[in-house]
Design a protein around this nucleic acid. Sequence first.
DNA 1: CTGAAAGCGCTTACAG
DNA 2: CTGAAAGCGCTTACAG
Lengths: 329, 329
Amino acid sequence: MDRRPVTLEEVARIAGVSRATVSRVVNGVATVDRELRQVVEKAISTTGYTPNRAARSLVTRRAGAIGLVLPEEGRTVHDPYFGRVVSGVLPVIRPLGVQLVLTTGDHREVVDDIRQRRLDGVILIHTHGADPLPRQLIEANLPVVLAARPVRPMSITYVDVDQAAGAALAADHLISSGCRHLATITGPLETPAGQDRLRGFLEATARHGLPEPVVVEGDFSREGGAKAAQELLADAAVDGLFVASDLMATGALPVLRQGGRRVPEALKVVGFDDSSPAVECDPPLTTVRQPVEDMAAEMARLLVERVERPDRPVSSVVFAPTLVIRQSS
Amino acid sequence: MDRRPVTLEEVARIAGVSRATVSRVVNGVATVDRELRQVVEKAISTTGYTPNRAARSLVTRRAGAIGLVLPEEGRTVHDPYFGRVVSGVLPVIRPLGVQLVLTTGDHREVVDDIRQRRLDGVILIHTHGADPLPRQLIEANLPVVLAARPVRPMSITYVDVDQAAGAALAADHLISSGCRHLATITGPLETPAGQDRLRGFLEATARHGLPEPVVVEGDFSREGGAKAAQELLADAAVDGLFVASDLMATGALPVLRQGGRRVPEALKVVGFDDSSPAVECDPPLTTVRQPVEDMAAEMARLLVERVERPDRPVSSVVFAPTLVIRQSS
DNA sequence: CTGAAAGCGCTTACAG
DNA sequence: CTGAAAGCGCTTACAG
């Protein structure tokens, strides 16, 4: 640590070439003479040379780092979703020598980080409708990709799961399991996910010719799920329930049980997310799984692409969800 | 983004001073004349100047970033513990202008990141006994802090919770709740946490004059908890159980229930960690809580300190755990 | 207290 | 294909 690292200069001297040539070898420029290249490569390995990133960044104007922006409350960090995003992103950027920096959603900080060239672009997860950050970033023409369809349409790159298709998966499953009186606890209906999941569920039940399901609005929280379940208890006929998030389902399940509904015998329940609560709750939850790691990897790819070619048109990708069947249905 | 950011040079020209003076103002050097300082500050705010970090890093030889090293399997990332660490670290380093970089535990990458001066130091969480990384880092004299006492004693900075005291908290609580026949499902006994929690538990029960508890070794996994609980079923007298991790407890609880043990009526259970499974399982778990956020903040502080003063002796900090009482006891 | 100047370690036109 | 040279945007002794 105290010993100064080897520089390009020294490698060049040892190899008997110019710094430019060493630089070309390090950066894989094809036009270097084979023999020279080998001499340089040997010098690099004997010295253990590794390029100083700050020096490179200074001239290339690239930080070699992207940011993962967390919502300011910091609540999300506790969410297993967050970890899945990280494990999806890391394998795609590491081979590119790009770092992943965690940062809070403070607007100034994010914009500053990019302006200081400490970050080449950012991935935004869990943005709310009121969040001005996405718009600010695209207006500043800074590379950004969202982890979900934006609340209001805008020209921004995003990756999402087909929410409606996921809800339809849940409906189809409940119906094919014999349920005839469906109900759903929705997400907040001002969010795209809340809307799309409800729509997908309603369309699928209609497609099967079943009567209109009972709809109770939730808020994606455990408490919200419990409250909604309480309401649902009033309707004794319900035999199939789609809860638009696993977290709400963990709130709903104990209420349903205390209300005398046996799951899955008398009432089948399907969640959404396949988050860790789905595995831990009792009974373990049948749920709609988003391919979060794959989605995150795609976000990373799109962002890197955008950093390299800021002029390219924005493009978005939608993934197909799958159903994970456990004991609640 | 296309428009080039403002540089020191331009601010200096506008303020009518040298670059050196602007640099001094930006870095808060006290010796700058009041009036000059104000002129410079005005120039900074009108231009919206913000320093280029790569340029600064190049001369200061500081990356202005620390790494949070994840175990290679990537499993840990799904763990809520990880998120708590992040939310503890971020608030202490952001005001210092230091970035938090996520990286996998690949040895070469970590060492390279530090040698390339992309990282000033690292926080290691979830290291195993066989992991050579901690030793490699201290031998290379690179700033590092561990999230727990190292398996083998070495001269390294770490932060830990008083594991034995936490286990004693559990024992005291079970005993004061009327339990007389105690048992414990331990962690893997080759880990410091496994050892210390067992020792603390045994010492506390002995202190109360109770007979030696039943001890079944676990492995900190859900499945391990289930398996150990199965063994425990053989002993009908047990009325108080300390499970050395919440995750194991979530595996144990269903087994105990199916074995006819009612929790908490016939058998009181206490976990360790206060992780999210503790809240989600049925019944919600009384558990020993580690002040993870505080511990993480301290890790960040110690690391930053170490980066600034590599010559200082290593120092470690041990935090006191607390008991969170829920329905399982 | 302030400025001129050197230098941090790279990359990249530009000649040749 | 290769090298000499300029330059990226800062900080920091060193004079004054």
